[in-house]
Amino acid sequence: MNTANRQQPAAAGGYFPLSVLCLSRSWGGLELNTVRFAEWMRQRGWPVEIITLPDSPIAVRAAELGLPVQVLRNPLKAVDLPAAGRLAGFLQKFNTRVLLVTRNGDLALAVLCKTLRRPALKLVYQQHMQLGIAKRGLLHTLRYRALDGWLSPLPGLAREVLEKTRLPAARLHVVPLGIEVDKFAHSGRTQAQARAALAVELPAGAVLLGLVGRFDENKGQLFVVEAFAALHQRHPNAHLLLVGESTRNIGDGYRHAVLAKIESLGLGHAVHVRGFTLQPEIAYQALDISVVASTNETYGMVTIEAMATGLPVVASAAGGTLSIVANGRTGLLFPVGDQHAFGAAVEQLIQQPTLAVKIGQQAQAEALATYSHHNQCAQTEKVLRALAAA
């Protein structure tokens, strides 16, 4: 083995400098998870810095948490040699041993930096999105083979990686993305207190459904409102809570369309809309049933958060949700876009409260056992330390 460029052994305790790259101006699940992961790793003793776009939501949130931030522009994308040089300078200054990339679009820059400027750098991709089309061509093969590790959050996504790329199987690891499960499972907050915190006033005996997530066509708020209209006619005690902001860089058009639909259907008294919150656990704790209506959710962090709260989940049978929700045991699945099946699933839980409680309990046990952020960090650490020792 060539040892000319090998870095020094890790510091005592196995903690060495780790940089996290995500050049995104959006603020969704990927970006939230990027900042959360960096903060969790810092809490465990890792020196961590985030490299992101200037004035991005990631940069703002990381600064609020006191995380070191380096800002970088990448206007030339895959061939941006100046940006690759600046990235290499950041890594050298921080003495970075491993660069973890959380956005697929940043892999080309990271590989360029490693290939031309930092050959001893260990490069790891933390997957958040599906691959889509096959990527077995020469360019993608060279890019992916420059990776030292690939962290896939679900077994199904890992299988897709092996099927659609030429990544060596030994570099692929299944590491579920985690949440701080105690925030959701053991808050000490009652349902009434959570509803009061959200200013949601309900009549006695009301059943509250809820969808938490940014307003986006793929998240399905419009579908849920339309399906809820029929459900509400049969169950006037049913109410709906929508929590989230408009998708960054897209505008408020979809959110306005949802609000207009609520108004046109005469549901203003039964549908409660609230903005984005850094405390989503309060929203879940206010609910009786959680709804996930995404057309193709890669992973489904909101599904896991609801499960950890102990809620029965009614979710569209698509994407990563199929790997997370066991139909009839930890939630109820319905075909994407099927309003009748959605209504039937919700109605089953309303009419059988004992079943709803049982499913919620089983869902919570699954979430606590599998999706704790401590598990994610521990499994990631194992991969990072093995790479550093190689």
Rank of each mutant, 00 (worst) to 15 (best):
M1C: 07
A12E: 09
Y15Q: 15
P17T: 15
S19L: 04
S19H: 06
C22G: 10
S26Q: 10
W27E: 00
G28P: 12
E31W: 01
L32E: 15
F37T: 15
A38E: 11
R42L: 00
P47M: 03
V48S: 00
T52L: 00
S56Y: 05
P57T: 11
R61A: 05
A62M: 12
P68W: 10
P68E: 14
L72I: 15
L76Q: 15
A84K: 05
A84E: 11
G89W: 05
G89E: 08
F90L: 04
R97V: 08
V98T: 07
N104T: 14
G105S: 15
C113M: 13
L116Y: 14
P119W: 03
A120R: 05
A120S: 14
A120V: 11
H128R: 07
K135Y: 14
G137I: 11
H140T: 13
P153E: 11
L157K: 09
T165Y: 09
T165N: 06
R166I: 05
A170K: 01
V175M: 06
P176R: 00
F184S: 03
G188S: 10
T190S: 15
A192V: 14
L202C: 04
A204Y: 07
A206E: 06
L208M: 01
G213H: 07
D216L: 02
D216F: 02
L222Q: 11
L231M: 08
L231T: 05
G244I: 01
E245Y: 02
S246I: 00
I250L: 04
D252G: 03
R255Q: 11
H256S: 09
L259T: 03
L259N: 02
L259P: 05
K261A: 12
E263H: 05
E263N: 08
L265M: 07
L267D: 09
H269M: 09
Q279D: 10
Q279F: 11
P280V: 01
E281D: 09
E281T: 09
A283H: 01
D288Y: 06
D288L: 01
I289P: 00
T295L: 11
Y299H: 14
M301I: 15
I304Q: 04
A306M: 13
A308N: 06
T309D: 02
L311W: 05
A315I: 12
S316N: 07
T321H: 04
A326Y: 04
A326E: 15
R329P: 02
G331H: 05
L333S: 03
F334R: 00
Q339T: 10
A345L: 10
Q348T: 12
L349Q: 05
I350L: 06
I350A: 00
P353K: 05
K358H: 11
A363W: 04
A365N: 08
A369F: 12
H373W: 13
N375M: 14
T380R: 07
A386P: 07
L387P: 05
A388L: 14
A389W: 09
